[in-house]
Amino acid sequence: MDNFKIKNYSEQLGKDLRLFDRLHLLIDTLGTTENLIEILDVLQKILDFDSHQSKMVRIDNPFWFPDTHWVTLAFAKFAMSASLSTTVVTLPQAQKVVELHFEEWPNASFRFTKAPLAAGGYYLEETAQNLRVLYWDVVRRRFYLDAQQFATLVQTEALQIAGVEALATFQKRLTAIAEQLAEADYDIVLPGSDTANQGNLVMTQKDLSADILDALFVSAAKQQFILKRIQNEQTGAEIAVGDVIIKLLQQRVDGGHAQWHYDIVDDHQKVTIYTLLQQLPFFYRWYMGNLNIVALKDKREVFVD
């Protein structure tokens, strides 16, 4: 039988308590700081925290929360500082991850889930539809929009009801968060979400077949919009929607291929391609029907189902 040494016990208990004290300090800082670099630093340390380093003290009770909870809370801080539209954080009953409610979208809620990737990272998802908005990798500093699922999300009833202004507010919020993260040397890819950058939105695949443009022509015509040819210094087609023009343009690239992209021309810089996908059923149907070809090129490799 081993000897029980009070001193050893006391030392281990002290170590464990200091470990949890550090966690306490990190969580306290996450709650109080407004410094975004500090938030990122603290979040990373919380995610790195390994409770198994504690030999004696265990937190195994309703107050233990997974990584996704802390990621959602940290993101909430970014979301709050990025927009005048409020962000409310709630913890639904019997849940272990908080939910985010953005004022602009009162009928939707969001939270982070773990991305099933070897590289790690988290997805921000709308909880009712399980549709991803973005991927956030705190360790490798990556922040990417899921252009395909976000296009689907903006068409859902909850977001449709909220309307164009709400979508604009959310996109501004995303863009502002991205700007903050860019200051922390993040790799940012949010295709099509910034009203000020609606040119050269590259499509997923090169070489559009004539059938795809024919399908857009037919689909648009059924709603009294006309796909017109562009024949000047550019080659492609365009649809005028009031003051806004959707241009589909091609550029010759290496290997004899043509890279297609969208230019959304809006002198007022109020709309993005997602606004149009939300407001124009013909455009959305065509886009979703040819998603793997005409969707905006995003960092598809991190979006795994």
């Binding site: 059938d211 024919d214 022509f217």
Partner: peptide
């Protein structure tokens, strides 16, 4: 679907 697209396209063209 290709045949349908062809016919619909022709119909749209005639209408326009």
């Amino acid at each position: 679907q290709k045949e349908l697209l062809k016919l619909e396209k022709l119909d749209v063209l005639r209408q326009l």
